[in-house]
Structures are given as structure tokens and as C-alpha cells.
């Protein structure tokens, strides 16, 4: 295969990864922005979303698109509920102390992962894509569903932008992010907002999980990679900055796609992880983020 088609395939793969990543990382970024806590269990919400998608799809017979659509609805709701509950039961009691919250979410990570192992088992299980079609390029074929994922990500990110910028709920969230105390003084129930934001972040992760499961299959250990990559994206994009997150997701997704194809996927991960550690040290607010408050 010539260099052109090679690059095309690498770009497509990179864009698909960027698409899923931007949704996942948006959730992490939102939680960090508003609550100022780092959620290490975020990857497990992706996994939980995928696993619930499998349960939903396997309960419904008929056209695969039915099962997929149902999963897209049920999965984020259930995952959001789990997140809401864990926020109320655990995180709130810690008063969002950053260090304690990280330790608690590590605990949550193990609890979610191992509970899924108990209930769902150690196998990887597939969910049928809503449609099955392969686009034929002269040099290779490419699954149309993967292109659909890119489209879906654009729609969802648009939706997030709309909610944050144009609705009252978004205003409340932005206020809480900008200045917790002042927001509280203006009668915004910051405490309850936190629970909803945590749930919303998890729901975004779950949506990413549902979108990815026809490509990847649901497996109890699938949460590690999305977590690491979202960390990378959120840190490079600037902690809490939504537009930075999207930009970084595209950057990381594309460069990862291309470096993995030209060199080695392990090397790609090593480079981006090291880069991120250094960004955190030398540009603590990310490449695009504003000064932290």
C-alpha cells in the first residue's frame, strides 16, 4: 500500500479514537472543572456503559439497531444513577478533599471492576452494530459504523456545548466552576450541582462505552485505556477547559493513530504519557488552560 492510503487509514483510525476519546474526556473534564476532583474510576464508567449495553442488547430480540438504540438510552441512565449514588455516599462525605477523593475513586474503580467480574464474568462479549456496512476504498475496506461513531461524537459534543452555553443548567455549572463560594452565595445549590455533574460526567463515559462496544466488545478490564488516554487529553487540553479537551482529543487521537501505525502502539503511549507528565510539571495549567483559580 502506498503512503497516501496508509495515511488515510491512519487518519481514519485516529479520528475514531479521537471521537470516543473526546466524549470520555469531556466527562472527566466536566467533573474536574466543576468539582475540582480527579475521578480515577472514570474508565470504569466507560466499561460499565459497555457492559450494560451488552445486557440491554441481549435482552432485546429483533433488529440490532433496536438493541443499540435501547442501550444508548438505558446505559447512560443506569451508569449515571450509579455515579450519583457513589457521589452522595462517598465523595460528598469527603468534602471533595482532592487527595481523599482520588483514593476513594481508586477504591470505586476496584469495586466497579470486580463487581462486573462477579456478575458479568471475565469474557469479552460483542454487541452487534446498529447497521453493518463496509465502505470499499480501492486499497482497503473500512467499517461504516466507525464513521458513524465520528458523526455521533460531533453531535454529542455539540450537545454538550449547547447545554453548557445556552441553558440554565449549563449556567449553573459554569458558575459553580468559576467560583464555588460566590455561586453558593447567589443561591446555587452547589452541593447538589456536584452530584448531578458527577452523574453527567459518568453518563458521557457510558455513552462512549456504548459507542465503542460494537467495535471493541465489552470486557471487565476495558476501563484502563480510556482512563489513561482521557487523563492525557484533559491534562494537555488544560484541566477543566472543554474546548481544550476537544482539541487535545483530536490531537492525541490523530497522533496516536499515526504514530502507532508508523512505529509501535506501545511507543506511542509511552511518548504521550511522558509528554503529559512533563506538561503537568512545567505547564501546570495545560497547554491551553487558563490560570487555575
Amino acid at each position: 500500500m502506498g503512503f497516501g492510503p496508509y495515511l488515510l487509514l491512519a487518519t481514519l483510525e485516529g479520528l475514531v479514537q479521537a471521537a470516543v476519546l473526546s466524549i470520555t474526556a469531556a466527562g472527566l473534564s466536566l467533573v474536574f472543572g466543576v468539582m475540582r476532583v480527579v475521578n480515577v474510576a472514570h474508565g470504569e464508567f466507560v466499561m460499565l456503559g459497555a457492559v450494560i449495553a451488552w445486557f440491554t442488547a441481549s435482552l432485546l430480540t429483533g433488529h440490532p439497531a433496536m438493541g443499540f438504540a435501547a442501550a444508548l438510552l438505558v446505559s447512560p441512565l443506569l451508569v449515571g444513577a450509579v455515579a450519583f449514588a457513589s457521589e452522595r455516599v462517598v465523595l460528598r462525605r469527603l468534602d471533595y478533599n482532592p487527595e481523599a477523593t482520588i483514593v476513594a475513586t481508586i477504591g470505586l474503580l476496584y469495586i466497579l471492576q470486580q463487581t462486573v467480574l462477579l456478575v458479568y464474568g471475565p469474557d469479552a462479549r460483542p454487541v452487534d452494530p446498529p447497521f453493518y456496512y463496509t465502505i470499499r476504498f480501492p486499497w482497503f475496506g473500512y467499517s461504516a459504523y466507525k464513521l458513524f461513531v465520528i458523526g455521533a461524537a460531533i453531535v454529542i459534543m455539540g450537545g454538550i456545548w449547547f447545554v453548557l452555553q445556552k441553558t440554565r443548567a449549563g449556567l449553573v455549572m459554569r458558575a459553580a466552576q468559576y467560583d464555588r463560594e460566590t455561586a453558593q452565595a447567589f443561591g446555587i445549590p452547589v452541593d447538589r450541582v456536584s452530584a448531578w455533574v458527577f452523574a453527567l460526567g459518568a453518563m458521557l463515559a457510558a455513552i462512549a462505552g456504548v459507542l465503542v462496544v460494537p467495535i471493541q466488545q465489552a470486557h471487565y478490564l476495558m476501563g484502563a485505556d480510556p482512563l489513561l488516554l482521557s487523563f492525557i487529553v484533559v491534562i494537555i487540553g488544560g484541566l477543566g477547559s472543554m474546548s481544550g479537551t476537544v482539541l487535545a482529543a483530536v490531537l492525541v487521537g490523530l497522533s496516536d493513530g499515526i504514530i502507532s501505525m508508523m512505529f509501535s502502539p506501545t511507543l506511542a503511549k509511552m511518548v504521550s504519557t511522558l509528554l503529559v507528565a512533563l506538561v503537568l510539571v512545567f505547564r501546570p495549567n495545560g497547554l491551553l488552560g487558563k490560570a487555575a483559580r
Binding site: G107, L109, Y110, I111, Q113, T115
Partner: peptide
């Protein structure tokens, strides 16, 4: 699923 205990103990 014995690693569950790590999560529970941590929390």
C-alpha cells in the same frame, strides 16, 4: 473477584 476487597477497604 477478590480484588473487590481492595476497593472496599480503601473506601
Amino acid at each position: 473477584a477478590y480484588l473487590l476487597v481492595i476497593g472496599v477497604v480503601l473506601i
